[in-house]
């Protein structure tokens, strides 16, 4: 076992992990942050996306030991300080960008990373950026729309509801 210490959602946490412990498992099992989900074994689905030192990574494809000393942000830390939904979360709700909710944490974390890099992405840029986030429910239409709306773009012209 190795001791790892990291800053998760602004709080310093530490724990003893095996070499093989994935960051996703450390967050879910050791820290109880079960908003980060595991949907595949091959680094494809993106349900586990968190930010490590400010960039999006797949936490099921990174060892907890590699995150020692890092700053980690998860879905649980995304809401505004008063507990209200942040602008991306709110846009997902307003535009029905989620159904079963399982891929949603990864989607929101990827969207946040995208908007940091590219504050006004086009529809195509959003679709390409979400290449590593699979949603089986929504058909992506409303996810794309929500991210455009969150970036302050007018989405009234995008089809119905």
């Amino acid at each position: 076992m190795t001791k790892v210490t990291m800053t998760v959602n602004g709080k310093t946490v530490s724990g003893d992990v095996e070499g093989r412990t994935l960051l996703a498992s450390f967050l879910r099992d050791d820290q109880g942050l079960t908003g980060t989900h595991i949907g595949c074994d091959t680094s494809q689905c993106g349900a586990c996306v968190v930010h490590v030192d400010g960039v999006a990574v797949k936490s099921c494809t990174m060892l907890a030991a590699e995150a020692d000393g890092a700053t980690v942000d998860t879905i649980e830390g995304q809401a505004n300080a008063d507990g209200s939904l942040n602008v991306i979360q709110q846009a997902f709700q307003d535009h029905h960008g989620l159904q079963c909710g399982f891929c949603t944490p990864g989607m929101v974390m990827s969207a946040a990373a995208l908007l940091k890099e590219n504050p006004k992405p086009s529809e195509q840029e959003i679709r390409e950026y979400l290449e590593g986030n699979i949603c089986r429910c929504t058909g992506y239409h409303n996810i794309v729309k929500a991210i455009m709306a969150a970036s302050g773009q007018d989405v009234t012209a995008i089809a119905a509801e």
Binding site: T34, G35, T36, E76, Q78, L98, F102
Partner: peptide
């Protein structure tokens, strides 16, 4: 129901 899913507090 979106609020719990969007904040990582759903319970699967």
């Amino acid at each position: 129901e979106d609020v719990r899913f969007l904040t990582g507090t759903g319970e699967y």
